[in-house]
Structures are given as C-alpha cells and as structure tokens.
Design a protein around this nucleic acid. Structure first.
Lengths: 194, 194
DNA sequence: GTCTATAACGGGATAGAC
DNA sequence: GTCTATCCCGTTATAGAC
C-alpha cells in the first residue's frame, strides 16, 4: 500500500499516519514491525524492486541462453529490461520502486546501488557485448539515458496537454521504448573534437 | 540560493529555516516578501526557468531563421533544447528549475505547464516539421522521452560506480545527447500489430 | 502484538516591537 | 522592512495498558 503513497506524494511528503490509515492499523505498529520510517521505506523498496529485478534477470537469462555466441541483440536486451516494470505500471499503477528515483539523490544512492546494482551490471555487460563499436564507458553513459527514460515513463508525467500522445497497449509502449532507444544505443561513437 | 537546497533535498525536504539560514535572513522575511512557502517555490521556479527557456527559444529562433523552407534538422532542434540547461548545470550545478520534476506530479503539474508549456510547444512544432514520417502524437511521445533523459541528466544521478562514464566537455555531453536522441527520434514509426 | 496516550521535536505561519 | 517571540499544528517515536 505504502508504495502508492510514495509514488503520489514522495517519501518526505508521506506521513506514517497516512500509511497506517490506508492500511487500517496504528502508527505504533509500524515502529514495532519496522523500527522507523526509514526502515519501512527500505523494506517497501526491497519488497517491490526484488521481484521486478528478478523477472528482468530471468528474461535476460532466457535471451542469453537462446542467443548465439555473439550474444543477444540490443533490442532483446532492452525489452528484457523494460517489460516487467512497464507491464506492472500499465496494468496496476504499481511501479516496483520507481519512486526512489525522485527522492534526493544523496539520501538514497546507497539503497539504489544495493537493490539495483547487480541487475544493472548484468544488463550493462550484455549491452557492452552487443555494442562492440562503443567503449564500455560509452555504453554505460547511454544506458544511463535509457534509465532516465524509464524513470520518466514510470513517473506518470508523460502527458502532453495540447498534443495527446497515442494510446498504446503494453506491447506497443514497450516497442516504442525498445525501438527508439535501440537506435540511440546504436548511434556512432561520439569523438570529442575539443 | 534556495534552488540548490531544492535540488539537494527536494522541496518537501527543505525547510524555510534552512533557506533563510543560508540566506542570512529570518524566517519572517520570507513570509513578508513571498507570503508562503508555496509562493516562494513558485517565485524560485519562475526566476530560474525563465532565462533558461528564453535562451532555448532564442536558439530555436536562430536556427529556424537560417534554415530553408523545410525547417531545421532534428539535431539542431535538440541542441537548442539541451544547450542552455546542460551548460548551466555543468558549469555551476545550477539547473534552472529541474528540481520541479522530482516533486509529486499532481502537485506541480499546473506550474510545469505554466512555465514550460509555451517553450515545449514551440519545440514540439519544430520537431513535428522535421519528422514528417511520424504523426504529431508520435513526435510528442518521443519528445517526452527526450525530456525524461534531460531530467535524469540534470538530476546528477548519472553515475556508474563499477563502470565510470567518460569525462566530457560541455560540448561533448551535448553531442552525446543530441546524436543519440536524434537517432531515437528518427527511428521508424511503430505500428501496433495487436 | 496491537492499541491509547503522550512525549519530544520541527514545521509553517503570525503578531508585534523596533 | 526586518527582527524576536510565539502560536499551533503535524510529525516521528516511545511508554505502557491490555
């Protein structure tokens, strides 16, 4: 339950009272079970990001198993990265733990590293293999752009008042992300002229 | 001054006392000059986003003036969109008002529309003209991805611990953004098969 | 284990002196 | 106009009854 409030109001803007009211319990119960608000948010993040990341890695394992020795294509890797969170968000409004990325950076950087680090490293390694024309650092740089896009999509701010964006199925949403960002990943390396 | 605190801690996480302490004045002064914390944040946003958006539009005007009847290229439009905020952020850590996009969506949507709406519409129109193979709604959809990338870049979260991303000059940063995202914008239209 | 009651604190806002 | 002092509220956290 709490993750919805964190999505809508942010962590700092969500009081324990709001969480407990929605859960039908008392404020003291939170402290009994979690110890503090920070421990609660940590538990919520681990609880929700865990399955999403596990599903991502399961899909990555699958496409790596059926790919040849050159490894899976960029499109397949990006789809494995996007599908679980986008599907979850489209269906139920739940987003795993995307609200984390709207919190102050310094505060939650260790938690992000802890909960996302291994998954992200696996995807980065796959992308490095699929993009031999780029240095690993350049792949990491572009993967960060992909992450930024996903955060924005999951933030629910992807609206345009005067010019509505097309209604899409889950597969359609994912295909837009995968096809456009694969093109971005494949763009030639940038050489600094300065 | 307040914008730095908003960047670092978020609006909800920044107390008026923290703002006034850094400014060397008293809490009452804020209420005298602005009326409330909300009015202060609004003033900060308008104060900082205004010049950035004006510079963006100035650059857009320039490239439209020197372009042929087919209008400027996607790369030129994206550079006009990115240069002012990225330059400001790289040089001084100031970001215009990017902290707005990490606040709860519902709360600040009207302000975002007010301060960004006209600028964004002008850029969207230019992109629609430069991408005749896409419906206007599809261009808006992809422009949202560009916006998500910019927000992420300005958030300062674009780090990668085990795999450092390349050090770049301002021009280098912008070129990466422009070249990769131009490729994303140019990718063929997605037709839903479902 | 879950509640009520309350402590201890920090927040935004305001009154009134100067 | 800018300060000090204060109000009043909501917050996290805890103590203790049950």
């Amino acid at each position: 339950m709490a993750e919805r409030l964190f999505d809508e109001r942010g962590i700092a803007g969500t009081s324990l009272r709001a969480v407990t009211a929605k859960a039908g319990v008392n404020v003291a119960a939170v402290h009994y079970h979690f110890g503090s608000k920070e421990d609660l948010t940590r538990a919520v993040v681990l609880r929700h990001a865990g399955p999403v990341n596990a599903e991502r890695l399961r899909r990555l394992d699958a496409i790596e198993a059926e790919a040849g020795p050159e490894g899976p294509r960029v499109e397949s890797i990006l789809e494995a990265f996007f599908r679980a969170p986008v599907q979850l968000w489209t269906e139920g409004g739940a987003t795993g733990a995307s609200f984390l990325f709207h919190e102050p950076a310094e505060r939650i950087q260790p938690l992000v590293e802890e909960v996302m680090g291994e998954m992200a490293s696996r995807f980065l390694a796959a992308l490095v293999r699929a993009l031999p024309h780029l240095e690993p650092g350049e792949v990491a740089e572009r993967f960060q752009l992909v992450i930024g896009v996903l955060i924005h999509v999951l933030s629910g701010r992807m609206r345009w008042e005067p010019q509505p964006i097309p209604a899409r199925s889950v597969d359609g949403r994912i295909r837009v992300l995968v096809d456009t960002l694969a093109a971005a990943m494949r763009a030639p390396a940038i050489e600094e002229s300065s």
